Structure formats: structure tokens, C-alpha cells
Amino acid sequence: MSIQMLGLKEITLSFVACRPRNAAATREAILTAATRRFTAESYDQVGIRDVAGEVGVDPALISRYFGSKEELFRAVIDDCGSGTDITEGDRATFGERMAHEIVYGERKESKLAWLLLMLRSASSPKATEVIQRASNECFFDPFVTWMGGEDAALRVRIAAGLMMGLTVSRDLSGLNMAPDECERLKGRIARILQDLVDG
């Protein structure tokens, strides 16, 4: 084999070895750009070409990594987190743990992104369908299974609404409460949530 052929083989092997890392970085860049777009504009306003242009890649590459625009949107939703970690830990301390998080937890960008995705795309039937399917598969259905017992689905809806509403309220407007009031608020929330879990 000639020196030129050996050199070409080494270059090819080097390129192949680097490709997975570059592919992963490109996929992550696409996902980041898509998240930025979908949280700033409605689902119907965002196009694959817009996302591709922001990343500097061919639109066909996005289709190769994610498939359709709908699948890209779903990937963005999944990247925000499923929320299934709320059921990790002892059932007997669920109310206390969640109440502490609601009152004292740090503001999380992933939660804000999820909220913005829902608000920006609420008018789109296609986006709403994707959001509802993702919510049921990744949050509500596992939560209902974990909750168990009579009216589990109803109890989960009440608990989820309470937790989401209070967290959003805290993140948007702040609690602006004295330390003792925060503790009393935490105690009340803990009792309500634990009652829902205990059935």
C-alpha cells in the first residue's frame, strides 16, 4: 500500500472516530436552538429551517436526527425533564418534601422552559396534542400508578395542580413572606399533599 493510501486511510479513520462526538454536539446544539425557539414563539411559528439556520446546519440534518417538527418538539419537551423524581423517597414524607420544595426550592430553568412551551403553543392543536401525550406518558400516568388506591387519577390531578400553581406563583411573583409565615405555609401545603397521597 502506498504512503498516500496509508495517509488517506488514517485521515478516514480519524474522521470516523471523531464523528460520534461531533454528531452528539450537533444534536445538542439543535436541541438548544429548538428550545430557544419554541419557548419564544408558538409551535406554528417555528420552522425546521429557522432552527437549522440558528445552528448553521442543513435542515435535512435536523430531520435525520429528530425526524419531523413534531418529534423535535417532543424531544424539547423531554429535555425539560419528566418530573417523575417527585415520587422518589418515602411515601410518608411526600407532603413534607414537596412542600419544602414549593416554598424554599430554587427556581429551575427547566420548569420555566416547560411553562413557556405550554403557554406559547397552547393555541396549536398539534402542539397541545404532543404536550398532553408527553405529560400523560412521563408524568401523570406514572404518578397515578405510584399514588394507587381509590380515585388515584383525581388525587393526582389535584396534587399536580396545587404543586404547579404554587411553584409558578412563587417563581413569577415571589413569596414576599416572613420566615414564620413561610413555615406555616409549608405546613399547610404538606398536610394537604400528604392527605392526597394517603387517600
Rank of each mutant, 00 (worst) to 15 (best):
S173R: 12
M118T: 15
R120G: 08
S124D: 07
F143V: 07
D141W: 08
N136C: 09
P125L: 04
K126G: 08
V156Q: 04
M118D: 13
M163F: 08
E129A: 15
D141Q: 13
S169V: 10
P125Q: 04
I158W: 01
M164Y: 12
G148K: 07
S135M: 09
V130K: 07
I158R: 05
W146T: 04
F143M: 09
E150F: 06
A159I: 00
I131N: 01
R157D: 05
L112H: 12
M147N: 01
A122N: 10
E137M: 04
N136L: 11
A113F: 12
S123T: 13
R120Q: 15
D141H: 11
Q132M: 12
A134Y: 03
L162W: 00
C138N: 15
Q132A: 10
V130C: 08
W114A: 14
M163L: 08
S169A: 15
R170M: 04
A152H: 00
A160K: 01
T167A: 04
S123M: 12
M164I: 11
L112T: 14
R157N: 08
N136W: 12
T167H: 02
A160D: 08
V168Q: 09
D171H: 06
K126I: 15
A113M: 13
I131K: 02
I158P: 02
E129N: 13
D151S: 13
L172T: 08
L119R: 14
S173W: 12
A113Q: 15
F143L: 07
R155K: 03
S169D: 08
E129Y: 10
L119P: 00
L166C: 07
W146G: 03
S123A: 14
D141S: 12
M118L: 15
V168D: 05
A113H: 14
L116W: 11
F139I: 05
A134M: 03
R120C: 14
S135Q: 10
L172Y: 07
L154N: 10
M147K: 03
T145Q: 15
V168F: 10
V156S: 02
A159F: 01
M147F: 03
W146H: 05
L166M: 13
A159M: 04
R133D: 12
L117V: 10
V156L: 00
K126S: 13
D151Q: 15
M163H: 06
L166H: 04
E137R: 11
L115H: 14
L117A: 08
Q132N: 11
D151E: 13
L115R: 15
S124F: 06
F143G: 07
S121A: 08
K126D: 14
V130T: 13
V156A: 05
G148V: 03
S135V: 05
S121T: 09
R170N: 03
A113W: 11
F140C: 09
S173Y: 11
E137A: 09
R133G: 05
S124P: 06
W146V: 04
D171W: 06
L172C: 07
F143S: 08
S121Y: 10
L115Q: 15
